[in-house]
Write a protein that binds this DNA or RNA. Structure first.
Length: 263
DNA sequence: CCCCAGGGTAGGG
DNA sequence: CCCTACCATGGG
């Protein structure tokens, strides 16, 4: 269990950073790290169902980024007026530490797309190519499996023109042409450059992959909503002192603009 | 019919 | 460097 202060499970799982959780009577079910996760938020705690302390420490503490002091970040961010307002509504969001390859594929699908359709495509992709880990539950497929597919194998997943992007990404990772493990710590510009050799990875998708998949917290995905926020509130850029954690600030501002502000 | 969706690419100035 | 048309697909 995790204390609930400054932690909103529903916002964290539904703010558009991950796509494999759904809510049923207040309980969230989903798949990450090749495991089925059942989890709920009570008044004071986040409760993990069917979970040993060992598994929580080995897998999920990292996934939910329990080591980061979000209260300290809120204090830092609150010096800024707009972020202060955003945090009032969205401060329970945590930036998840997701699998790098899954994040890469997921945000290739996200381009010029909407969240319900992204979710649908990803679930269909897992059903077709992922290993079955429980009834009607499938893990995210690995790079080798996707790389061995052909374009026609992707039909019916509502990927549109993005099918060849997935294949290119899977082949570059599977062949070793791209070593994703380097992206955690290599210089950030090198990480961006590496990802952008993949067809369909531009500036925005690269930032998403690095932030959500490789814990590069300085990365700021500039989607249509964040562009509106920047134009309206930050024409001179984000405050200097938050830049090392700008990705987390971005998550608050993105969700604030999308769900609470009127643009 | 239009527009938009967590954009990127190719092609032309 | 900039700008624009186009890219599949579904929902409003």
């Amino acid at each position: 269990m995790i204390p609930s202060s400054a932690f909103s499970l529903s916002m964290t799982l539904q703010c558009g950073q991950c796509f494999r959780f759904f809510e049923e009577n207040g309980v969230f079910l989903g798949v990450a790290n090749g495991r089925l996760l059942k989890i709920e938020q009570t008044d004071r705690f986040i409760r993990f169902f069917d979970m040993t302390q060992e598994e929580f420490q080995a897998v999920w503490a990292n996934y939910f980024d329990c080591a980061t002091d979000y209260d300290a970040l809120h204090t830092l961010f609150s010096n800024d007026q707009t972020l202060c307002s955003a945090i009032e509504k969205t401060g329970g969001i945590r930036v998840l530490r997701q699998d790098g390859f899954e994040t890469l594929i997921s945000f290739l699908i996200s381009q010029n797309n909407n969240i319900p359709r992204i979710t649908k495509s990803i679930n269909l992709l897992c059903e077709r190519f992922g290993s079955r880990i429980a009834p009607d539950t499938f893990a995210f497929p690995d790079a080798k499996t996707l790389a061995s597919a052909s374009l026609s194998d992707f039909s019916g997943l509502s990927l549109g023109y993005r099918d060849r992007y997935l294949l290119d990404a899977a082949q570059k990772v599977s062949s070793g042409e791209i070593d994703l493990s380097k992206l955690y710590t290599c210089p950030i510009e090198e990480a961006r450059q590496t990802l952008r050799t993949i067809c369909g990875v531009g500036p925005k998708v690269a930032e998403c992959v690095l932030l959500y998949g490789f814990a590069r917290l300085s990365c700021v995905p500039m989607d249509t909503w964040m562009k509106k926020v920047m134009a309206r509130y930050y024409q001179a850029g984000l405050p200097e002192e938050i830049l090392p954690y700008a990705g987390i600030a971005q998550q608050y501002l993105f969700h604030y603009a999308r769900c609470f502000d009127t643009f």
